[in-house]
Design a protein around this nucleic acid. Structure first.
Lengths: 216, 216
DNA sequence: ATAATTTTAGAACAAATGTACTAAATCTTT
DNA sequence: AAAGATTTAGTACATTTGTTCTAAAATTAT
C-alpha cells in the first residue's frame, strides 16, 4: 500500500477518534511510522489532509448515492440511499463533528459544503416529487411545508453524528441505525397508505409507523 | 460594571464570532483592556470561561423555561418555550458550534450536557402527555414513535445553529425564526384539529400547517 | 551503470499559547 | 492612617505546532 494511502487512512482514524485539533502532522506521521517531514512532503498540513478526505467522501457519495435518479426512486431506493449516506457520513464523521471550525478555517471547503447542501435540497425536492407522483407520498398540505421538512431532514442528516458523539457511549452500527430510524420516521406522517405499506416492508424492525389508531 | 462581568461579556462575543479556538486569554484581555495576567487571575484559562458561560446559559434557561410545568402546558406555552430556548441557545451559540470539542476537552461539561439532555427528553415526554391529555395532540400511533419524534426534536434543537452558521449568511433573529418554524412544524402532523387550530393562532405568519387537502 | 527524480529523515526556526511569578497599585477594614 | 487583602500589569518560561530546509536514501528512467 502506498504511503499516501496509509497516511490518509491513519489521518481518518485519528481525526475521527481524537478530533482534527488533537491530531497533528506529527501524531499522524508517528502512527504511520514515517517522519513528519515526509508527511508534509505528501500533504502540506492537516488542512490538506482534511480536504483530501472530504474529496474522498464526495467521491464515495457520488458513486453510491447520486446515481439514483428520479425515475428509479421508490420507497426502497429512498431508504437505501439514506442508509448508505448515513454510513458514509459516519465513516468520515470527523467532518461532521468539526464542520463549523473546518469550514471557518478552510474557505474552499465552506463553499463546497454549501454547494452540496443546495444540491441535496434539490434532490430532496425531486425525491418528494417522485414519491408523490407514484402515489407513495401525499401532496403538500400547505405551500412551504415540505420546505420545512427538507430543512429538518438536512439538519438532522448532517448533525445526528455530533449528537451521537456527545450523548451516546456506543459506537458504530448501533448508533447509525438508531438515528437512521428516527430520521426516516420524519417521512411517515406524509406517506400515503400505499407508501406506508412499502415503507414498513423496507424498514427493518418495522413496528414503526402503524397509523390505524389516530385521526383527530 | 465589574471586571469579571466585562470579561464574560467579551469572551461570549469573541467565542461566538471567532470560535473558542481563535479566542485566547490574550485576545479577550486585550479587548477588555486589561492584561492577560489579570484575566487569568479571574479565570484560569479559556476553559474556565467556557464553563462560566455554560453555567450562565443554564441559569437563564432554568429561569425562563423550566418554570413551566405540565399543568400549565398548552400550545401557546409550548411555542413560547421553544422560542425562548432557541433565542438563548443563539445567544450562547459558540457552545453549540463547538459542542463536540468542548465536551471532549472538559469532561465535567460533557456530563452536565448529558444530564441536561436526559432532563429535556423527559420534559418532551411530559409535554407530549400534557398536550395529549388536553386533546391537543394525538395518541401515539405506535410505541416508540414519539421517542423518534423526541430524538429528532432534540437533535434539531441542538444543531440548527451549526447548520445556520455554515449555510446562512444572515445573522440574528431572521435565522432563529427560520429554524424555529421548521422545528415547530415537526409537531404539526401529530396535532389534533383542536391542537392545530391553537397552533395556527400562536405561530406567527401561520400559513403553516393547513391540512384540509391531504389524507390518503 | 549512471543520471535524474522521487521519497524520506531529521534538524531548525518562528509563532502562539497556557501558565506561573513578581511586584506594584488599589481597595477594605480596622 | 496603617495593615492586610485584593486586583492588576508585565515578564518569563515551557510546550506545541506548522513550516522550511538540507542531505541522504531509494527508486526510476535512460
Amino acid at each position: 500500500m502506498t504511503t499516501k494511502t496509509r497516511i490518509l487512512e491513519t489521518a481518518l482514524r485519528q481525526f475521527n477518534e481524537i478530533g482534527t485539533d488533537q491530531a497533528t502532522v506529527r501524531s499522524i506521521a508517528e502512527e504511520v511510522g514515517i517522519s513528519h517531514g515526509n508527511l508534509c512532503y505528501h500533504y502540506r498540513n492537516t488542512d490538506a489532509l482534511i480536504e483530501a478526505l472530504y474529496d474522498e467522501l464526495i467521491r464515495e457519495i457520488d458513486e453510491q448515492v447520486f446515481q439514483i435518479q428520479p425515475p428509479d426512486i421508490d420507497m426502497a431506493s429512498t431508504v437505501r440511499s439514506a442508509g448508505i449516506t448515513f454510513r458514509l457520513l459516519y465513516k468520515y464523521r470527523f467532518l461532521m463533528l468539526d464542520l463549523v471550525r473546518i469550514t471557518r478555517r478552510i474557505g474552499s471547503l465552506r463553499e463546497k459544503f454549501r454547494e452540496l447542501m443546495r444540491l441535496r435540497r434539490l434532490q430532496f425536492r425531486q425525491g418528494f416529487q417522485a414519491l408523490i407522483s407514484k402515489g407513495l407520498m401525499r401532496e403538500e398540505w400547505a405551500p412551504g411545508f415540505y420546505d420545512h421538512l427538507t430543512t429538518n431532514m438536512l439538519v438532522l442528516g448532517d448533525n445526528w453524528i455530533p449528537n451521537a458523539e456527545i450523548h451516546f457511549d456506543e459506537k458504530g452500527d448501533v448508533v447509525v441505525q438508531y438515528y437512521l430510524e428516527a430520521f426516516l420516521s420524519l417521512l411517515v406522517p406524509y406517506l400515503t397508505e400505499k407508501g406506508l405499506a412499502e415503507y414498513r416492508l423496507v424498514v427493518a424492525g418495522a413496528n414503526v409507523g402503524r397509523r390505524e389508531g389516530g385521526r383527530g
